[in-house]
Write a protein that binds this DNA or RNA. Structure first.
Lengths: 191, 191
DNA sequence: CGCTAAACGGAACGTCGTTCCGTATGGTGG
DNA sequence: CCACCATACGGAACGACGTTCCGTTTAGCG
């Protein structure tokens, strides 16, 4: 059985095709127009109706997650590796945050969406937090128990802060999110 | 001539009345619904048509500025005062940033709007930057020339960073913008 | 080959920002 | 006191958008 994990029942071939086309089109559209490109635009470029769009991705969060899942997983998996391979836990934390920032600032409107209180993005928040906060927490507690950073900041708060600093990082020459994040991480140090 | 500074030609009484009603209604609506409350809602609560709304405040930025102008001016004017009355320039900078943060986090959606690339908010960005960046720059250069903070961060960048950290600060009980901002300001210190 | 569940397409609805023009009215000169 | 008109008003109308819904098509199986 060389098929992927689809135990219950297969999807129709056209359904699978349309879903993959939508994913490809969305990935391209996100690059140029950000994660808020109109539904009709994506559907039209994929050659499907809006009904098909919504059937495959009921909320914009579902589409965004599907497009970026691989990169987010890669970022999450890099955490333990960095912790094992760095001189200090603080260095590992800084490196990992850099990875996260690099990911975020290249995605038009993603950092904004993570802060949006729009109900259609709730799943997106949840996924990011579920996947990345534990990784960050491990790095943070390692650095804290080594006495390298202060212990009164939670991983959740740190992630939110770093994410916030990435908002508007593209489309604003004159604003260097990386520099501000490194300032923030520096401020985390135990003096 | 006991009238305020209206040299050219007076406005009609109903026009002035409607504008003030709109301002009052908007101030109240911003408190509960944020700066994105629908135009129709504000107009209806003020008992005017949407045409009247747009005549007085062509863009949302105009309305937001009109509502918050006093507070922004007060913040701007506090800068030099704090610089004169503080022990160190860094302390003055920190105090002033606190004022700014206190202002921002109590305004639903304002920090988000400052980062929005929506054309209707352009005037808002411009006003904030025009009014506050110079004040911040004075504090920052004072601290930098005293050797208290690093000199490779611009006032613009710092303001943007602090503003970003205030996004979503209300409506998120696990996120303390003040703490993260103080971390950032701490990271600014010359070690 | 025919049948049916699965999937499709896009018209239609509600919300919102914004524009526009026919109507009403405040203030002034006679 | 009145008539006039610049000023201001109101809300219908338009376009963009997210979302829903249902009549139609089609893939896959027996």
């Amino acid at each position: 059985m060389p098929e992927s994990s689809a135990p219950a029942h297969r999807k129709r071939a056209d359904a699978r095709r349309n879903m993959e086309t939508l994913l490809d089109v969305a990935a391209a559209a996100f690059l140029t127009g950000g994660v808020h490109v109109p539904v009709r635009e994506i559907a039209a470029q994929a050659g499907v109706g809006v009904g098909t769009y919504y059937r495959h991705f009921p909320t914009r969060a579902d589409l965004v997650i599907a497009v970026y899942r691989h990169q987010i997983e890669a970022c999450a998996e890099a955490g333990p590796r960095l912790l094992a391979g760095s001189d200090t836990a603080h260095a590992a934390l800084a490196s990992w945050i850099d990875l996260f920032v690099d990911f975020l600032i290249t995605k038009h409107g993603l950092a904004e969406a993570l802060r949006s209180d729009d109900a259609t993005f709730q799943t997106l928040h949840a996924y990011f937090l579920e996947r990345l906060v534990p990784v960050c927490a491990d790095l943070l507690t390692a650095a804290a128990s080594a006495g390298e950073v202060r212990a009164d900041v939670t991983a959740y708060e740190l992630m939110r802060g770093v994410g916030n600093l990435c908002i508007g990082a593209n489309s604003d020459t004159g604003y260097d999110a990386r520099r501000l994040v490194s300032l923030l991480i520096g401020g985390l140090r135990q003096q």
